[in-house]
Design a binder for these strands. Structure first.
Lengths: 106, 106
DNA sequence: TATAAAGTTGCAAAATTAAGAAACTTTGTC
DNA sequence: GACAAAGTTTCTTAATTTTGCAACTTTATA
């Protein structure tokens, strides 16, 4: 039977993955792998209002995946954990394998 | 500006992370790292009805993170991608770092 | 054959999350 | 000081997810 501690632990991790569970947040992280970007640039790139971009970035930050630094009126976001790159690669692999498998079934 | 292809790509990846974005699904994956388990065992471990466990496992399977094999009336689930272990470790690191940072701020 | 055990699926209610618009801060500039 | 640019926050509505229960399928067994 699951303990309180195990549940709490799982919640914390799930919370981190929840931050990755949105197309635009994934897209932002991909962009941030190259270099840091400010909110308005990312909003423009994604074609969404600044308010939405700001909220998505806040989620990534809250999960510890990115960090920000203010310069004048701009807020630049950058990636924190380098292992996120490997994670993305793993995701890529899983997705490809899964696709192959599903095609095989049809 | 984001292209259709980039968006599609991000959606596919986000979909995979969505499968990880739930405490019980994380918990199930952790259990499956040790050995394979059947639905009813995992349901008992988590203290939830079989139907709920079945649905969570179906999500993990659909995302290509686990696979199943039937034996009699039992359906055993096991993990597919070994890199998921590294991913979990990365998640662990991010969570810990983030916690440190947040404590530092308070 | 009748029954039970293991899983899955469908449905409605409850809970979370996302999106858009408007208001509000803060910083820099004319 | 007035204005504009960059961000964040708030609020409401819309969309997704999660949950629990009941119904149903399949396989094993008395």
């Amino acid at each position: 039977m699951i303990t309180e501690d195990e549940l709490k632990r799982s919640e914390i991790r799930a919370h981190m993955f929840k931050a990755l569970a949105h197309p635009l947040r994934i897209y932002f992280l991909e962009k941030l792998k190259e270099k840091s970007w400010c909110v308005c640039e990312l909003a423009d790139e994604a074609g969404i209002p600044k308010s939405a971009a700001s909220k998505h970035l806040a989620q990534l930050k809250e999960a510890g995946l990115v960090e920000d630094s203010k310069t004048g009126t701009r807020v630049e976001y950058s990636i924190t954990a380098p292992c996120l790159l490997d994670m993305a690669a793993c995701a890529e692999g899983v997705v490809l394998e899964n696709r192959k498998k599903q095609i095989g079934l049809n």
